[in-house]
Each structure stands twice: as structure tokens, then as C-alpha cells.
Lab assay of single mutants.
Amino acid sequence: GATAVSEWTERKTADGKTYYYNNRTLESTWEKPQELK
């Protein structure tokens, strides 16, 4: 079946920190989402 992984995108802030952005829920998080573990 379909997985939720594609909803999350790994992004970088202007100062180079990595965060994760969810295209479906429009939420962002510093922690790696469960779906990516």
C-alpha cells in the first residue's frame, strides 16, 4: 500500500539546520518523524 513517507520533506533553514516539513498537514518539526525512522 501507500506509505506516509512522501508527505515529509527534509529541508534546511537559512543557517543550515535540518528540519522536516509535511506537505499534507503543513506541519514542520525539528525531530525526525516516525514515518522516516
Rank of each mutant, 00 (worst) to 15 (best):
G1M: 12
G1V: 13
G1D: 13
G1K: 11
G1C: 15
G1P: 12
G1L: 13
G1W: 09
A2M: 14
A2G: 14
A2L: 12
A2Q: 13
A2D: 13
A2H: 12
A2W: 05
A2I: 14
A2T: 14
A2P: 13
T3D: 12
T3F: 07
T3N: 12
T3R: 11
T3Q: 13
T3H: 13
T3V: 11
T3L: 11
T3E: 12
T3P: 11
T3W: 04
T3A: 14
A4R: 11
A4L: 11
A4E: 12
A4K: 11
A4V: 15
A4Y: 04
A4I: 14
A4G: 11
V5T: 13
V5Y: 10
V5L: 14
V5W: 11
V5R: 09
V5I: 13
V5E: 15
V5M: 13
V5Q: 13
S6K: 09
S6I: 10
S6W: 07
S6H: 12
S6Q: 12
S6T: 11
S6V: 09
S6E: 14
S6G: 14
S6R: 09
E7S: 06
E7A: 06
E7P: 05
E7K: 02
E7L: 03
E7H: 07
E7I: 04
E7F: 06
E7V: 04
E7M: 04
W8I: 02
W8P: 00
W8G: 01
W8Q: 01
W8T: 02
W8K: 00
W8M: 01
W8L: 01
W8S: 00
W8D: 01
W8H: 01
W8Y: 02
T9H: 10
T9F: 09
T9K: 05
T9D: 11
T9V: 15
T9S: 11
T9P: 00
T9E: 15
T9N: 07
T9R: 09
T9Q: 15
E10R: 03
E10F: 02
E10H: 02
E10L: 03
E10P: 06
E10Y: 02
R11D: 03
R11P: 00
R11H: 14
R11F: 10
R11I: 14
R11A: 08
R11T: 06
R11G: 07
R11S: 05
K12R: 10
K12S: 09
K12Y: 12
K12Q: 12
K12V: 13
K12W: 08
K12F: 10
K12T: 12
T13V: 02
T13Q: 04
T13S: 08
T13F: 03
T13D: 13
T13A: 07
T13P: 00
T13H: 03
T13I: 01
A14P: 14
A14S: 11
A14D: 09
A14T: 08
A14E: 11
A14N: 08
A14M: 09
A14K: 11
A14H: 12
D15W: 06
D15Q: 07
D15H: 05
D15V: 04
D15M: 05
D15C: 14
D15I: 03
D15F: 05
D15T: 07
G16R: 01
G16A: 02
G16P: 00
G16Y: 02
G16H: 04
G16K: 02
G16E: 03
G16F: 03
G16S: 03
G16W: 01
G16I: 00
G16Q: 03
K17L: 10
K17R: 15
K17P: 01
K17D: 08
K17Q: 09
K17V: 08
T18R: 06
T18N: 06
T18M: 06
T18W: 05
T18V: 11
T18L: 09
T18H: 04
T18Q: 04
Y19R: 01
Y19S: 02
Y19N: 02
Y19V: 04
Y19Q: 03
Y19P: 01
Y19A: 01
Y19W: 05
Y20A: 00
Y20N: 00
Y20R: 00
Y20T: 00
Y20V: 00
Y21C: 05
Y21G: 01
Y21W: 08
Y21E: 07
Y21H: 07
Y21V: 08
Y21S: 03
N22R: 00
N22Q: 01
N22F: 00
N22E: 01
N22A: 00
N22L: 00
N22K: 00
N22M: 00
N23R: 10
N23D: 09
N23E: 15
N23P: 10
N23Y: 11
N23M: 14
N23T: 15
N23C: 15
N23G: 09
N23L: 15
N23V: 15
N23S: 15
R24Q: 10
R24H: 09
R24M: 10
R24Y: 12
R24E: 09
R24F: 12
R24S: 08
R24A: 10
R24K: 12
R24W: 09
T25V: 01
T25K: 01
T25L: 03
T25E: 01
T25R: 01
T25M: 01
T25G: 01
T25P: 00
T25Y: 01
T25D: 02
T25S: 04
T25W: 01
T25N: 02
L26N: 14
L26D: 09
L26G: 15
L26S: 13
L26A: 10
L26T: 10
L26W: 06
L26F: 14
L26P: 00
E27W: 02
E27A: 05
E27H: 04
E27M: 06
E27Y: 03
E27P: 00
E27D: 04
E27N: 04
S28Y: 12
S28E: 11
S28A: 10
S28D: 03
S28N: 05
S28R: 11
S28H: 09
S28I: 15
S28K: 11
T29V: 14
T29M: 08
T29I: 07
T29H: 06
T29D: 03
T29E: 04
T29W: 05
W30P: 05
W30N: 06
W30R: 04
W30V: 05
W30Q: 05
W30S: 07
W30D: 06
W30G: 04
W30K: 04
W30Y: 10
W30A: 05
W30L: 08
E31G: 04
E31R: 06
E31M: 05
E31I: 12
E31F: 10
E31T: 09
E31S: 06
K32R: 12
K32M: 13
K32W: 05
K32H: 05
K32D: 06
K32N: 06
K32E: 09
K32T: 09
K32A: 07
P33Q: 02
P33F: 01
P33M: 02
P33H: 02
P33Y: 02
P33C: 02
P33D: 02
P33E: 02
P33K: 01
P33L: 02
P33N: 02
P33V: 03
P33A: 03
Q34H: 11
Q34R: 07
Q34W: 10
Q34N: 13
Q34T: 11
Q34L: 12
Q34K: 10
Q34I: 13
Q34V: 13
Q34P: 15
E35K: 04
E35Y: 07
E35N: 08
E35W: 05
E35D: 11
E35I: 05
E35F: 06
E35V: 06
E35S: 10
L36D: 08
L36V: 08
L36W: 05
L36S: 07
L36Q: 08
L36I: 09
L36K: 06
L36H: 08
L36E: 08
K37T: 14
K37L: 15
K37Y: 14
K37W: 14
K37Q: 15
K37G: 15
K37F: 14
K37I: 14
